[in-house]
Amino acid sequence: MSPGGEALSRILYVEDDHDVRKVATFALKAVGGFVVEPCESGQQALEKAAGFAPQLLLLDVMMPGMDGPTTLERLRALPAIAGVPAIFMTAKVQPQEVSRYRALGTLDVISKPFDPMTLSATVRAIWAGRDD
């Protein structure tokens, strides 16, 4: 389907808000049929990442402790994760912010709040367009 060929299955998802994490994880699994590893903090993501071998990282930007961009930077320092594409999720989407995140090598930014019913389709569309 996508020009890159590889179908998306495994997503490492980092979000500190308990309820949002629950809903998004469920939606990605049930609606999108993805295999999802939810993490409640950047620290937990660092512990789980290599073992889970994700194809995509989905990161909340603003988290207490280690924020999204820092988490991404530390994840990318892991050899197994170095080339894994990432998507940020954030409640504050300002144009300059998006270009800053893009500069960090992310595929796209999904604005929060998101609709659980369409989240999977959004992720899939970004994934399909990643080689453009």
Binding site: D17, D19, V20, V23, D60, A91, K112, P113, F114, D115
Partner: peptide, 20 residues
């Protein structure tokens, strides 16, 4: 911030808009 990020997901888009 959390209200802004979560409100719309749980059916309260106006809450998200006001909280941001």
């Amino acid at each position: 911030h959390r209200l802004a990020g979560a409100g719309g997901t749980f059916g309260f888009p106006a809450l998200s808009k006001a909280a941001a």
